[in-house]
Amino acid sequence: MQQELFKEIIEHRQGRKIADQIAKVHLKSGKEQWILVHTEIQAGDEVHFAKRMFEYFYRIRDRYGKKIVAIAIFTDKGTKSTNRYHEKYYGTELMYTFNKFVVSDFDEEELKKSTKLLSKALLASLYLNRTKNEMSLRSAYKRTLLREVWSLENVEKTEVNALLYFIDYLLKLPRAMTEQLIRDVKVEIKGEEEMLHQYKGGLPPTLAGVLELERQEGIELGIERGMKQIIFGLFEKGAEDEWIAEVSKLPVTKIKEIRKELK
């Protein structure tokens, strides 16, 4: 719903490129009641945040005339932002209260036990805050979380794929650690490679890296096998190891290893 409303309510927010979400949902009871869920993703304190939440509320209410569930999700445990907006002036008084969640308040062990996709997204956010200066620990968390997500059953692959992308980009790692993570994941999914082809619309970076690594290793293996066949032929013609090493640009020790392999 946000596309038609954003021009009206966030033009004053200069420089913000990631939009808050406004969506239609259904109640668990199945009751046919249309509500708007307004979600705010906040990383830290913002001056007049509660007032802005109220402004969103009355603009949405005025436009659609529907019941609104407003939720503010804070990813920074140190936030001091309130979930209330109070205004009083000469006998006129207004109190607006909205739902406020701080990611760090969720129980980590309960999140780990949960099979819901949201629990894994919350864990990723917890790990992000915990590992700001500990990339090795972040890599370990990321590997575990990726495994848990792609192992989830009875979940739409498009949803799993979206969450894998989220984790990949949220828990960013230095290049060397990313390459090591890809190698580790490749070993971990050995025998499950068909899983990579279940994701339509493109693989998330880590799994795409695994597929590319397999392709590169396949090419290198093919080149190595072809080179060995040529060297075997030179052995049969009586060529010396030193000469073969010179023309093949390989170390003499490698040529000797191949000769032993042939024997």
Rank of each mutant, 00 (worst) to 15 (best):
M1F: 07
Q2I: 14
E8W: 05
G15D: 09
K17Q: 02
K24G: 05
S29G: 08
L36V: 11
H38M: 12
H38K: 07
I41V: 15
Q42W: 03
A43P: 13
G44C: 00
D45K: 04
F49K: 04
F49L: 06
K51Y: 10
K51P: 10
M53T: 11
F57R: 00
R61V: 10
Y64F: 15
V69K: 11
A72P: 11
I73R: 01
T79R: 05
N83I: 06
K88C: 12
V103P: 09
D105V: 07
L111I: 03
L111G: 06
S114H: 04
K116C: 10
L117I: 14
A124D: 03
S125M: 15
L128W: 07
N133V: 12
S136W: 13
L137P: 04
R138M: 10
S139V: 04
R143Q: 07
R143E: 06
L146W: 03
W150S: 03
S151T: 00
V155W: 03
E156P: 01
Y165W: 14
R175T: 12
T178C: 01
T178Y: 13
E193W: 06
E194R: 01
H197R: 11
H197G: 02
H197A: 09
P204V: 00
P204M: 07
T206K: 03
V210A: 09
V210E: 07
L213F: 10
E220I: 00
Q229D: 12
E240W: 01
D241S: 14
W243K: 13
I244W: 02
V252I: 14
T253D: 13
E257M: 00
I258E: 09
R259P: 06
